[in-house]
Amino acid sequence: MKPYLAIFNLRMINGLQYRIAALAGVATQFVWGFMYIMIYEAFYHGFTGTQTISLEQLATYIWLQQAFFFFVLLWLKDNEIFDSITSGSIAYELCRPCGIYGFWFAKLIAHRLSGTLLRCMPILVIGFFLPIPYRLSLPPNFLTFILFLVTLLLGLIVVISLSMIVYVSVFVTMSPIGSFLIFSVVGEFFSGLMMPVPLMPIWLQNIVYILPFRLSGDLPFRVYSGNISTNDAIIGILTQILWIIGLIALGKVLLTKMLKRVVVQGG
């Protein structure tokens, strides 16, 4: 476990170094949050019927998206890993006394965690004090808050086990940018980053629920805002766990296969 903790620690320190970057990130997230809520406000303004999600819930949903942006977004990529694969220096990593899968996993978690720790607090705090309908509301009760934390952390693991598969795929494509772009654009759409899942047409929602992408952001944020009931939240947690097991297993199998190939080719 120790080497994993070490790389985690290193990545965290590295992330903390950039305070202006963090500030800029907060500002960016803030502007985006405002912009989205403003657009939805305009949509709701002239609309007389009811939607599956209220504007207030939506505002909370969007602020959480912005605060935990680094947990959700898919185009966040670790160029070191890409480079080590394409340049063949992965052979050196094989010399290390710990598994590559776990090593990369720890590194990716640390990257997202350090990014989030720096950014989420200011956004959350300011969000709480904004006027309605822009306000980030509190969760309806303590249980939902606990469920939110659980789904959020499991969601982070889902995202990372998903992206591990993309990293492994680079062994085949050898050029990460194109496939990564398509993966992130499509994935972010299905995770509700482009438009909130509850506002999608039903047929599209059905597709979204089959795919794992929504488990990272959409599920925890809707649990928090009370848009998803406790029962559904627990089903959501089970789904997350199943996906995590499946994705990690798949990722490990693929990685082992690819590494064998590297060894055979001599790097």
Binding site: T173, S175, I177, G178, S179, L181, I182, V185
Partner: peptide, 12 residues
């Protein structure tokens, strides 16, 4: 290959 994939991605 990368060029074509990128162009398609940019379309998306």
């Amino acid at each position: 290959a990368s060029f074509i994939l990128m162009t398609i991605g940019q379309f998306f």
